[in-house]
Amino acid sequence: MDTEAVRSFVRAAELGQLRHAADELGVTQQAVSKRIAALERALDVRLFTRTPRGVELTLDGQAFLPHARNIVTGADRAVTAVRRGSRALRIDVLGLRSAQAVILHDYWRSHPGCELDVVTLRVDDPRLAVAAVRAGDLDASFRSVTDPAALPHEVRMIHAFHSPLELVVGPRHPLASARTLRPAQLRGHRIWVPGIAPGSEWAEFYDELVTEFGLRVDAAGPNFGNEVLLDILADSADVATLVGSRDRYAWPAGHDLRRIPIADPTLAYPLSLLLPRANPHPGLGAVIAHFTGLAPLPGKVWLPSWAVTTL
């Protein structure tokens, strides 16, 4: 099996667009498309469905993806075993538009010589990220294990940074004209956050947030992605959502969406980093130092009970 075709499939699946996969792999989009087409012929299945916004995995593609990742990892390990030096620092983030990716990009811009491999596991269960760190497939992962007893001894969890939340609303929403909001002002408003997976760290975060401030957080309905969510907010007079202040979102100018900071107290999502206790990647220390140098959040800050400094 052509490992470069498998690698192209994995990156296209993780990034959602052939063009982005091609840019990352340093080849043309046509080359990536040909590789994946050849892989589909060899397997006699369709791996992707093409959409106006990119590519989506078929059921066969979803079944093949974890095995394809193992193939790529195995090939990389084989090369690393005979190549002088070590591979790039591999860090898992929740999404390439997330605050974690933004902070890592800031670090990379200030350290242009560093080799950084930013990946997205696309799993909701933090135990899978723990297993990947433990096995050495990842050097670090932006995940939190909310129950310390579930963390194996070989993996430690440290505080990375706190991500303050903002309310996003359309121009007709009652809170659209506010410059800042207190948590009490969000009561009674529908805060729609599709994609809250049971058992995930963010499910526990929102559970505590609702209990603490009496908010109405609604996760009902399928998650069609950020673009659809932003479209709905633009047309709605009563739906809002919560995002991290550093998270990157783009929408058409006609949407006229508003991102409103929340303060007194600031509602913050604690971002942690999972890493091995023994023999961490030599490039990891400088990344952690970069997090340590971030300015602390001003004023009163609310965090969930499971926020930690070090385990």
Rank of each mutant, 00 (worst) to 15 (best):
M1H: 11
T3V: 15
E4D: 14
F9M: 11
R11I: 13
R11F: 13
A12F: 03
A13M: 11
L15K: 11
L15M: 12
H20L: 15
A22T: 07
D23I: 13
L25S: 08
T28R: 02
T28G: 15
Q30M: 09
V32N: 10
S33D: 11
K34F: 14
K34W: 04
A38R: 15
R41T: 07
L43R: 12
D44N: 14
R46Y: 07
T49E: 14
R50T: 12
R50N: 04
P52F: 03
G54I: 06
V55I: 11
E56Y: 06
T58G: 08
L59E: 15
A63T: 05
F64T: 06
P66N: 01
P66D: 05
N70K: 15
I71C: 09
D76M: 05
R77N: 12
V79G: 08
T80C: 09
A81C: 07
R87P: 08
R90P: 00
V93M: 10
V93I: 06
G95W: 06
A101K: 05
A101C: 08
L104I: 00
Y107K: 08
Y107W: 15
S110G: 11
H111F: 07
E115W: 07
E115F: 04
V119Q: 03
T120D: 15
D125E: 12
R127Y: 08
R127M: 12
A129T: 03
A131N: 00
R134E: 14
R134C: 05
G136D: 01
D137W: 01
D139N: 03
D139A: 00
E154A: 15
V155Q: 01
R156F: 06
M157N: 08
I158G: 05
A160R: 00
P164T: 10
P164H: 12
L167Q: 09
L167W: 04
V168T: 11
G170Q: 01
L175W: 09
A178G: 11
R182W: 02
R190F: 11
R190I: 11
P194R: 03
P198F: 06
G199R: 08
G199Q: 10
A203M: 01
Y206P: 04
L209P: 09
T211F: 10
E212F: 07
V217F: 08
D218S: 00
A219L: 05
A219H: 12
A219C: 10
P222Y: 02
N223H: 09
N223P: 00
F224E: 13
N226T: 14
N226Y: 09
D231T: 06
D231P: 00
I232E: 14
S236N: 01
T241E: 10
V243A: 15
S245W: 13
D247S: 14
A250V: 12
A250H: 14
W251R: 05
W251S: 09
P252N: 02
H255N: 06
H255I: 01
H255D: 09
D256I: 01
D256K: 05
P265R: 09
T266K: 12
L267K: 07
L267S: 05
L267D: 03
A268E: 03
L271D: 04
L271G: 02
S272L: 03
L274T: 02
R277S: 01
N279S: 14
P280L: 09
P280F: 03
H281I: 00
L284N: 06
G285K: 12
A286V: 00
V287Q: 00
L294E: 10
P296E: 10
L297I: 15
P298H: 09
G299W: 01
V301T: 04
W302Y: 03
P304M: 10
S305I: 03
S305Q: 15
V308W: 00
